[in-house]
């Protein structure tokens, strides 16, 4: 049953027991939207490095409350900071939000495979994010910026519920003015006065002029959004082997032991969370999974 992740990554310190949380201190908290915040952590032991790859996630443990899997949203090139962007939706994420600067939480990870940046080299790159799905893709953008010459055209297509739900607004503005990145943003609904796009994120694809033969796509967002995004990308000529998505299920152990996140023959935590579409497309249609 156990499989190798699509892109095996050796970022976790093998001397650390994967089920044992390592204490980290909250260094900074930034409010992103009314229900989303970004938390920056530093290790308690002062050894300030936490290498990870774009797409990986950590299990964050609020002592006495519980543990949740959260994607790393920081810069892989800056392993001194551990950054997560978190949406307050349940008991643990609300408890995470209440942690003030200096307070301590437990971290296990990083877990899972990563986005296929090496495979994307030499190609155009379409990064498609919906809602909080931009968080696991932000490390991709940082990594692309650090080696921009390796890629062809790069597109960020980002959809959110309303203008107030857009993440990383200041960074989005900076990215928009970059000559080497094409950014298109849309929201599902807006009041009059919003000057940006309104419509589902897939409508942004018509604005992106890429070479479908030499393009790789990375998608992260709600599963329904990803289903429609895959359809549109296929219509634009991309093969399923060049489309990659980040899946989510109820992850608990993070190392493929407990089975909570089982998705057909895969464990999302261990074999994913990033999957090539051709490897899971048959499972997408199965309602029982």
């Amino acid at each position: 049953m156990a499989k190798t992740p699509e892109r095996q990554i050796q970022t976790r310190d093998s001397s650390v027991e994967p089920m044992q949380p390592v204490p980290f201190r909250v260094e900074r908290v930034k409010r992103e939207t009314y229900d989303t915040f970004t938390q920056q952590l530093i290790p308690m032991n002062g050894k300030g490095r936490f290498p990870f790859a774009a797409g990986q996630f950590n299990m964050l443990y609020v002592f006495g409350v519980g543990e949740v899997p959260i994607s790393i949203s920081g810069d892989p090139g800056d392993a001194g900071k551990l950054v997560h962007t978190i949406r307050e939706v349940g008991i643990v994420t609300r408890a995470l939000r209440k942690l003030a600067r200096g307070e301590v939480l437990g971290v296990r990870g990083p877990f899972g495979g990563c986005w296929p940046l090496e495979e994307a080299a030499g190609n155009d790159l379409v990064i498609m994010a919906g809602g909080i799905g931009l968080a696991p893709l932000r490390p991709v953008l940082y990594q692309v910026f650090s080696q921009r010459e390796k890629f062809g055209k790069v597109f960020l297509l980002y959809g959110a519920r309303t203008p107030g739900d857009l993440l990383y607004k200041r960074e989005l503005e900076k990215w928009r003015v970059r000559a080497d990145l094409e950014v298109h943003v849309t929201v599902d609904q807006a009041a009059g006065g919003w000057q940006g796009n309104v419509g589902v994120v897939t409508t942004l694809l018509s604005k992106a002029h890429f070479d479908p033969i030499n393009t790789l796509a990375m998608i992260c967002g709600p599963e329904v959004m990803m289903r429609f995004a895959i359809l549109e990308l296929r219509n634009r000529g991309l093969g399923p082997q060049t489309i990659h998505i980040s899946m989510e299920r109820n992850m608990k152990c993070g190392i493929g032991l407990c089975g909570h996140c089982q998705f057909g023959p895969h464990f999302i935590c261990k074999d994913g969370p990033i999957f090539r579409v051709d490897r899971i497309q048959d499972l997408f249609a199965k309602r029982e999974i």
Partner: peptide, 10 residues
């Protein structure tokens, strides 16, 4: 597109 918008996926 309107139907997907109605789903309020985010």
């Amino acid at each position: 597109a309107a139907r997907v918008q109605l789903l309020d996926v985010y």
